[in-house]
Design a protein around this nucleic acid. Structure first.
Length: 278
DNA sequence: CTCAGTGTTCAGTG
DNA sequence: TCACTGAACACTGA
């Protein structure tokens, strides 16, 4: 579930819990799927006793910088989250819900016990998330394969147009491609295309100059706005398609009364508004 | 019981 | 090699 804004919220949760603190111990679950390329025991040895000097994000990947390498790298997949005691989970549509008194949460894959008594858990119910170890995450796969992060480095209109023109696939599929724009997922792609007035089935290289400029501007706008409200859906503007795209409800309409249709584009369920997108 | 799903990867194809 | 498509992955909640 988590796309860029939800991941940024997770980064902030981890940062406020762990930045500047020493990891006194870890509790690692046995899981040879979520732990990718590193055994839980080796992960534990790499982090125990280390101090957290930064918590960073690019696209949907989050990593910790420590006072010694290698460093841990996390991906939430569809259902991952960082949790601390006494806080609600990321408001996932189908994610785990745990009462304030439950700790560690269900589906915890690693719990960090920090100096001063703080706790931070990485949870992952459907096991599509990943825990990795990297010597230098930014220069190694998978982060080195990512495209621009729309929050950190949205390209200039000219550079954006150049990259888009190189792509012959459907514009929705291009937006979802992490090597094009890192952090965009299904709901952001639909929201951006709706607000830009572009049919998701159009081929990226066929967009004209005005459409390309609108697409870039809305991509930056939607993500900045979602991050500004800490990815809390109830605080997204009421006019956003987001609030009305779910359930494939017959007769679903936008806030201005236009019918919403659901189709499959680039292999993903796509909500769009034919009256507003061409 | 069945199936979609705020994601990623890989085999197969062009 | 590049690029795209669809299936697989895993499993909860509706």
């Amino acid at each position: 579930m988590p796309e860029l804004p939800e991941c940024e919220r997770g980064r902030k949760i981890a940062e406020s819990a762990a930045l500047g603190r020493r990891i006194e111990s870890l509790v690692c679950a046995e899981d040879d799927i979520v732990y990718d390329g590193v055994a839980p025991e080796a992960f534990e040895r790499a982090l125990r006793g280390r101090r957290v000097t930064a918590v960073k994000r690019r696209g949907k990947h989050i990593w910790f910088e420590l006072d010694a390498r290698p460093w841990p790298l996390f991906h939430f997949g569809m259902t991952g989250a960082f949790r601390v005691p006494g806080e609600d989970a990321l408001p996932l549509a189908t994610g785990p819900r745990v009462g304030e008194t439950d700790w560690p949460p269900r589906f915890t894959k690693v719990e960090l016990r920090l100096e001063g008594g703080g706790r931070l858990a990485f949870t992952n119910a459907r096991r599509l998330g990943r825990i990795r170890l990297r010597h230098d995450p930014e220069t190694e796969a998978p982060i080195s394969h990512l495209g621009f992060d729309p929050l950190l480095d949205l390209p200039s209109p000219k550079a954006f147009a150049t990259r888009l023109a190189r792509r012959s696939g459907r514009v929705k599929g291009v937006l979802l491609d992490q090597s094009f724009a890192a952090g965009v997922g299904n709901w952001i792609a639909d929201e951006v295309l709706y607000q830009a007035g572009i049919d998701p089935r159009r081929r990226a290289c066929d967009l004209d100059d005005a459409e390309t400029r609108r697409l870039r501007a809305k991509l930056g706008h939607v993500i900045r706005r979602a991050v500004a409200v800490n990815a809390e859906k109830s605080r997204f503007p009421r006019t956003w398609l987001f609030h009305r795209r779910w359930g494939k409800v017959a007769n679903a309409r936008t806030s201005s009364g236009d019918p919403i249709e659901h189709i499959t584009v680039a292999g993903r369920t796509t909500a769009w508004v034919p009256a507003r997108q061409s």
